[in-house]
Design a protein around this nucleic acid. Sequence first.
RNA 1: GAGCCGUUAGCUCAGCCGGUAGAGCAUCGGCCUUUUAAGCCGAGGGUCGCAGGUUCGACUCCUGCACGGCUCACCA
Length: 491
Amino acid sequence: MEEKKRRINSPEERLVKERKDKLKLWMEKEENPYLTRFIPRHTTGWIARKCETVTSGEKTDVKVEIAGRITALRGHGKSSFADVRDAEGKIQIYAREETLGERYFLFKKLDLGDIVGVKGRVFRTRTGELTVEALDFFLLAKSLRPLPEKWHGLQDVELRYRKRYLDLLSNPNTKKIFLDRAAIIKFIRDFLNKKGFLEVETPMMQPIPGGATARPFRTHHHALGEDLYFRIAPELYLKKLVVGGIEKVYELNKNFRNEGMDRLHNPEFTMLEVYSAYSSYEEMMKLTEELVCEVAGKLKGTLKISYQGDEINLSPPWRRITFERALKEMGDIELDFQDTSRLRKTAAGLGLAVEGLRDDQIIEHLLDHQVAPKLVQPTFVIDYPFQTSLLARRKKENSALIERFEIFIGAEELGNAYSELNDPIDQRKRMMEVKGESQSLDEDFLEALEYGMPPTGGLGIGIDRLVMLLTDSASIRDVILFPQMRPKKQQ
RNA sequence: GAGCCGUUAGCUCAGCCGGUAGAGCAUCGGCCUUUUAAGCCGAGGGUCGCAGGUUCGACUCCUGCACGGCUCACCA
């Protein structure tokens, strides 16, 4: 009881109550705002364009009907100013008792955050601000809770992620990032569609999760009585489509991996995978350069970008360096990857945890830890030891290597590609060798390969990371609208 | 999962070597018809993340827990 009383009297509840009382007053004097119909005929952007040439102090005959959220209120006794924001921008509203008569006192009862419709006439104030003088106004939705502070916005990182709507409302840069994200994805689709690639959707729920090595999320299908896994990659399905004659294909959608979360990892993330028949990783390198440059150029108008304090030049051609040389030149590591015990010793000597890791994981760790931090300018690291992927084709000249590359920009891995292994016999053999670890034998996929898959180049690009790069964001959570968070416990 | 750091009013932040809580914005009341981070006068608002402990006394020190950030580990 005591507990309950205290909660109702909390300062926040009092603020809410004040606003609820104003809502009640409005409903007594006017109507239920939640049932009010008001279709704005104009936007703030339209007004700005239309009235660009109006001079300070000038009144116009331009009548407008706009709607938006009140983001500032400045009362002056018998007149008031308000800023109203819509999707395109904001505009000042000027309300006068002389014009609105008895209803002016209702205008003064409006709160920051209220959503209103305004009919009025455009003029420009003495101080040069384009303004709508309100001839009539409507409350369309009452804001019952106070918005974050106008000047600093919402700073609390946790709240920004949990209540993204508040972040979007009060931090212009947040909105910019997500507009940019949408533009980037559109540019990618435009680019690939223009080149004749077909966008497809393949299963998010798979009986055997394949195409990568990662812990999957598991779920259960009741009607089938079967466990299913959220996909960790669409790769095997996309290759089946290449077998089926869809020679240029891509999918741009989510993957799910049940691993740790950090600055670069969210359990669900967006991946682009592209497959092109009768090509190889050579062509995929060109495609990658072209795609990233097209997107960056369209978004930023330049190929010179700044990421976390580093100046990065995306102009092709990007540097290419073999895996072996990269380790040697930048990590001062020279070894035979077949020599497992020396590999582990070298890695341990560099302070890497090797216990419980497979050879291929250690090999990749050497690159990620010793070399990647130095790869700020766009770089293709090519020709990986064959252990690092079981889906990539071997190099003709050296069967210990595979035709694979990874893209590094800004010291972060952005993508991964290879000449796809299309030999079903070698594929089966390699899958058998690692079966029982993180990959199960996917007979469906192997059978598809047995019908014949053309030599194919495949490419994967982490879209969230590309967005991070192009929006200069430090964390993946800054480019995902609702990043995964631990649920807040009640009470 | 481990280490380090953080959590004070609705929001943004101060708060010293332990002495009992401060500002700005927002809110409420008053004045104000071209302001714009409007202004002026006044007021209210806090279980200092949660639970223990030490102490005459804890926002402050200690322990545990919750949530978050960074780093490390798994992964992209």
